[in-house]
Amino acid sequence: MQDKKAFFSLTENIHYLNCATMSPLPKIVEEAGIKGLLRKSQPYEISQEHFFDTAIHVKKKFAKLINCPDYEQIAIIPSVSYGMATVVKNILKKGIPNHKTKVVLVGEEFPSDVYAWGELISENPKVSIETIQAPQELNSRGKNWNDALIEALNSEALAVCISPTHWTDGTLFNLEKIKEKCQQNNILFVIDATQHLGAYGFDIQKIRPDFLVAATYKWLLGPYGTTLAYFGKYFDDGFPLEQTWIGRKNSQDFKNLINYQTDYQEGAFRYNMGEFSNFINLPMVEKALDLLIEWKPVEVQNYAKNLAKPFIERLRKAGYWIENEDFRSAHLFGIRLPKDLKIETIQKALSDEKVFVSYRGNAIRLSINVWNNENNMELFTKILEENIL
């Protein structure tokens, strides 16, 4: 794969290595958003069918991206936190078996993957959160973290909520091993793939989570405010977070909406957010998905791996610590500073050269995507090498 910088509006003097915070919009996604915005100026051209058609296209394309055979298992929601709240609501409504006493999370997880479980615990105090913290020892850190997580997935676990690529440092968690333990011990498998999908291959039929969610504004190259979710069989006939008119049976028939329905639409349609038809965001998401299907997330991962490899070797020689590639992603990873080097020094040096990254504690979070090239990586690496004491 060649770099795709021409697809974006980034200027030459900007070195944007921060997709883990937010991606730039591809030009065709930007154009779709502007067109969608202007569409509202002629509302008479928006028909009843338009409340459904683009959403169906988005669901089908997202299903293709994750190899989901049934697009009706996909829902359109506003955020990851909305999805997690929906999961917790269904667990509480369906009831918790007496022997299930814990929810398993990993340390320093993104807050949207944590707070909803607090509501579950407040409603059912017999359940607690078991947090598997990252090992302090850097040697074999990723392996040991994975081993500790797998060990925690015993018969007492009600659910495990995991990001396949940890949002702070790119640690990879072994989804196949987690799936096996979940199946053995009847554990709900909940995945926040926001920092994973779009830059890493994923097969829903292979991993088989009960719930998967991903915000579109990062690696899915879409707008802020739209999130895509997969609901497995556990959620069939379940309980949506809100009661929308469009989620009910026969909602396509506008003239009969006052004939109130008790039944929901098929599949995960009930879990769609209110106003999910968003005439600005959904065309943008559709165009972004088209690009990712064409580019292939597996190839995006390979591109990031090949681009970063020689520069990672240089950084390690300079004294920076980076996890073994078997236990981290190539598109997002942490770079720990040598002991005597202050993070503020690096922040200023990178900022002065318009190099954009993120910082977590005393580490740099570097995130690479298809608009990045050797020039970006060379400047970033050179700055870090020059600031070694």
Rank of each mutant, 00 (worst) to 15 (best):
V88Y: 06
K126V: 09
Q73G: 00
G225S: 10
T345N: 07
H15N: 14
P223E: 14
L315P: 01
P43I: 05
T381H: 09
Y16A: 06
S122C: 06
P240S: 05
H196E: 07
K354L: 14
D340P: 00
A85F: 08
W167Y: 11
D236Q: 11
R248W: 08
K382S: 15
E108K: 09
F202G: 13
I388S: 01
G95D: 11
I335S: 04
I178Y: 02
P125I: 09
Q133W: 09
I34A: 06
I162L: 13
P24W: 08
N154E: 09
D253P: 00
D147L: 12
C19K: 07
L38W: 07
E109M: 12
N250Y: 15
L138W: 10
V106P: 01
A148L: 12
Y200I: 10
K177F: 14
K348M: 05
F311N: 01
E30C: 01
V370S: 08
E385H: 01
N124W: 03
I346V: 15
F269A: 15
D237T: 02
N124R: 06
V88T: 06
E119T: 12
W321H: 14
I56P: 00
F62R: 02
K382H: 13
E385M: 11
K287N: 13
K339P: 00
D236H: 04
S251M: 10
N144V: 07
Q184H: 07
E242W: 06
G118Y: 11
P338Y: 09
L10S: 04
L389M: 06
N272W: 15
V106L: 13
K40I: 08
L149G: 02
I66G: 10
F189R: 05
F189E: 05
F8Q: 09
V106E: 10
V300S: 10
F327R: 02
D203Y: 08
D253I: 11
N278Y: 07
K287I: 03
I191H: 09
V213F: 08
K177T: 09
W321Y: 15
A349S: 15
V300Y: 10
A214G: 01
D340G: 10
N281S: 14
Q133R: 04
E31L: 11
L172W: 01
R39V: 00
E180Y: 03
Y359R: 05
Y320V: 03
L282F: 12
R316L: 05
W371I: 07
L366S: 04
K179P: 02
N373V: 04
I388Q: 07
V80L: 14
S122E: 15
K5G: 14
E386W: 00
L241W: 09
V114W: 03
S47Q: 14
F173W: 13
I346Q: 08
S41W: 11
I76C: 08
T171D: 05
S41Y: 13
L289A: 03
R365H: 00
N272P: 01
W145R: 03
D53E: 10
I34C: 00
K60M: 14
S23C: 14
E325C: 03
G334S: 07
T11W: 02
T11R: 12
F110A: 14
E137N: 14
E72H: 08
